[in-house]
Amino acid sequence: MVDILNWANFGCDGRWDYAAPFSDCGAEHRRRDLDKDPYTAKYRDVVKKADFLIFIYPIWWSSMPAILKGLIDRVFVQGYAYRYNGVIPVALLKNKKAWIITTNRYTATIC
């Protein structure tokens, strides 16, 4: 059975606000505290409830779009998605699977 979680059902309108308040030097937004950021809590809740994540995006300048990179950097943070055991990263989001589907404008015949 597949249950699709819609961002909107969790108070998220489906749009990531890349201009949300964030400053590496601001006391309320230190990188080590991002797992407690109230702005990203609703997104963390959606990820926690999901068993399977699918990211679909176009390749943009040889990478994912910056807005998606911002979402990943702010939601999948240390203390929530992973922690360190010494220098070894340890996954905290157990029993989750993900697909990444990308698009570009070239066909397989172009070299």
Rank of each mutant, 00 (worst) to 15 (best):
D17N: 00
S63A: 15
A20Y: 06
A91N: 12
C111E: 13
L71C: 01
A19I: 06
G11P: 00
Y18T: 07
I110T: 12
V47E: 06
F52L: 05
R105V: 14
R31Q: 11
L5D: 07
Y80K: 04
A91G: 14
K36L: 07
Y84G: 02
Y106W: 12
I88W: 09
Y82C: 00
R44L: 00
R15A: 00
I4N: 06
L34G: 03
R83M: 08
Y43P: 00
A91F: 09
C12Q: 03
P89Q: 10
P38L: 08
V46P: 04
Y39T: 04
A98E: 09
V47M: 01
K97P: 05
G26W: 12
K49R: 07
D37S: 06
T102I: 09
S23K: 10
D13Q: 03
V87G: 02
N85Q: 02
P65K: 13
V75L: 09
T103F: 11
D13H: 01
N9L: 05
V75G: 04
F55Y: 15
N6P: 01
S23A: 13
I88L: 10
D45P: 04
V90E: 03
L92M: 06
M64G: 14
F55I: 14
Y80F: 09
P65E: 10
M64V: 11
R83V: 07
C111Y: 15
W7Q: 01
Y43G: 00
Y80V: 03
A50L: 14
V90L: 05
R31A: 06
A27K: 13
A8W: 04
I56R: 13
I72Q: 09
G79R: 01
C12P: 04
A98M: 14
L93P: 08
D35M: 06
G26F: 12
C25D: 15
A8F: 06
I67A: 06
D35N: 06
N104S: 06
A98W: 14
G70A: 11
G79S: 02
V90R: 07
V47H: 07
V46Q: 02
F55H: 11
V90T: 03
Y80A: 03
K49A: 02
A19T: 08
A27F: 14
D45M: 05
A27I: 10
A98V: 13
K49Y: 01
F55C: 14
R30S: 14
R105D: 15
T40R: 04
G70F: 12
F22T: 03
Y84L: 03
Y57K: 04
T107H: 12
A66L: 10
I67Y: 03
M64K: 12
D24L: 12
P89K: 09
E28C: 08
A81M: 02
A50E: 12
R105S: 15
I56Y: 13
D35V: 11
Y80H: 01
A66W: 13
Y18R: 09
